[in-house]
Design a binder for these strands. Structure first.
Lengths: 233, 233
DNA sequence: GACTGCGTTTCACTTATTGAAACGCGAATT
DNA sequence: AATTCGCGTTTCAATAAGTGAAACGCAGTC
């Protein structure tokens, strides 16, 4: 059973994704973007609309609907990893003044893996890196991406200077859980999230990088050690 | 054309909603909750899963997926009304110390209308009302609900003491846009959102209510007056 | 006035969805 | 141990449901 999924639903979800990615999309554009016939796209968008997942603005263009906002916010609240990591984010910002983030590996869409920001805390410097929850970054070439794909070196943290974004240096460390065999033996660890700091490159030197790296690694390690509850990536 | 929507997609979205509402749902429960046969629910959930909208945790239960988080966060960012209203929320909190919210009317689901929190700012008092973005409240019996359904009295704000929530008093005022006829004449106003303050009832008296009400009404009125751009409910 | 592109509706084709039934499994019950 | 129960899963024939080409009206544009 390779693909026992329902084509109609897949198409509708694809359409929904397109609308949310674009922010605002006309029917013809949506149809082109998903390679659907106009009539099919119209029918599916109408269904999405009647459920509140998209809406039409006064120009007739489709936009993300409030249902998406609601479900997304609900889903975020249920992510236990976020509440566990928030104190760490706060401590990191307090100690460094730089913006701190929590990333997980996003669903494997086409075009390679991506990381997803699911929590953040802005730095206190007036010049600071600023991203947002819901943003995705390629795993390839980013510090958090390296960490999420298990490429953390022995030092315990990854540094990427001017990787996917220019002028900034990212420092990331893994939050990992132990994996168990059916009989209970520990078989290894699996990275479920990355804690990272992103700072303007001009502001930090090798010494600062080392200090931040060790801090982030220590905080990342402590996120799950104190209170080991149910948590999934 | 009463309902030219696709049943399959409707069912899938319903399933998605169930999973997000419950936070965690077993296949059998999801099937029961949506009155679908187990095989159909399984097929649809698999499709949702392969698109990242839901995921299975290690117990085999379905949970909201990261795609939902991502799209929801994206959608929130595109809500221009939020960025326009945020300064107002901040000023209200600074002036009153109480939590301030921005609500819109959620998609009309079954069971009457609901309001949806799309932005908030927590108060500064140690005892304060605290809700969250994504939460819904019934329009019936709430201050913001009255405002959103156009029932704002001449005073410009609505006060509800111990309405849907006990021990708190809610004060809400409408953010409205002018509606135009095709020829450009103004035909009336339409409420697109509500600005509200929710405070513990014991802390505020008639005098304070009046002060807050006038402040909220003034701020709500100013949200769209200074900078009139594209904005839809 | 001809043309282009959009949103929309219609309709015959047939594909893709459907749900009952059956299966294996583990847990709770006898 | 044997039994029952409910869950997740697979299979499969019936047909309900989704599909897309075509045609339409409409607004701009050339």
């Amino acid at each position: 059973m390779a693909e026992p999924s329902t084509r109609t639903v897949e198409r509708a979800l694809q359409l929904l994704g397109s609308v949310c990615d674009a922010g605002s999309l006309t029917l013809a554009d949506a149809a082109r973007g998903t390679e659907l016939s106009a009539s099919t796209a119209l029918r599916l968008l109408r269904t999405l609309e009647s459920s509140g997942f998209v809406r039409k603005d006064q120009d007739g263009a489709y936009r993300p609907g409030l249902r998406i906002v609601q479900l997304g916010a609900q889903a975020l609240r249920h992510e236990s990893i976020i509440s566990l990591a928030e104190p760490a984010l706060e401590r990191i910002v307090d100690a460094t003044g730089e913006s701190a983030y929590l990333n997980v590996q996003a669903h494997h869409g086409p075009g390679g893996g991506h990381g997803l920001y699911i929590a953040m805390r802005e730095g206190t410097h007036s010049v600071r890196h600023s991203s947002w929850v819901g943003r995705t970054v390629p795993l390839e070439g980013s510090a958090s991406g390296a960490v999420l794909t298990g490429k953390t070196p022995a030092a315990g943290y990854v540094v990427v200077d001017r990787g996917v974004e220019s002028d900034v240096t990212a420092i990331a460390a893994p939050i990992a859980v132990a994996t168990h065999a059916p009989d209970g033996r520990i078989t290894g660890t699996r990275v479920i999230a990355a804690l990272s700091v992103v700072a303007p490159s001009y502001r930090i030197d090798a010494e600062k990088i080392k200090a931040i790296g060790e801090l982030v690694a220590a905080e990342a390690h402590n996120v799950l050690t104190a209170d080991q509850q149910e948590n999934q990536p």
